[in-house]
């Protein structure tokens, strides 16, 4: 698969973790209705399991998957679950 080498992995749509985020956003409504407040373990755009805490999700995921191959996604409605908002105007200079 061709990739755009000028972009960072997170910006590249072929990055598996970026694909996992896109999949989460596309299915967020259904996921949040069922797993609100949970932490989702997502691999290859598939939901593997839902956990009560980030620590539990992290330690369990490492038993099966290598770091960098899975996404741990807090699940809730709205963009807050996947967006860090910086309200200080100075941050606009570094984006």
């Amino acid at each position: 698969m061709a990739t755009d080498s000028s972009k960072s992995p997170a910006e590249n749509s072929s990055d598996p973790l970026k694909k996992n985020l896109d999949w989460y956003i596309a299915n967020q409504k259904e996921l949040s209705a069922k797993y609100d407040g949970k932490v989702l373990l997502i691999v290859d755009q598939k939901l593997i399991a839902a956990f009560d805490s980030m620590g539990e999700a992290y330690t369990t995921a490492l038993k099966t998957y290598t770091l960098g191959s899975f996404t741990l996604q807090p699940c809730s409605s709205g963009p807050e679950s996947y967006t860090l908002m910086l309200y200080s105007p100075s941050y606009s200079l570094i984006s």
Binding site: P9, A10, D15, L17, K18, N20, L21, I42, Y58, L67, G68, F70, T71, L72, Q73, P79, Y82, T83, L84, M85, L86, Y91, S92, I94, S95
Partner: peptide
């Protein structure tokens, strides 16, 4: 990395 996140500025 444990995932991708957007940063809103």
């Amino acid at each position: 990395s444990i995932g991708t996140r957007n940063v809103g500025v």
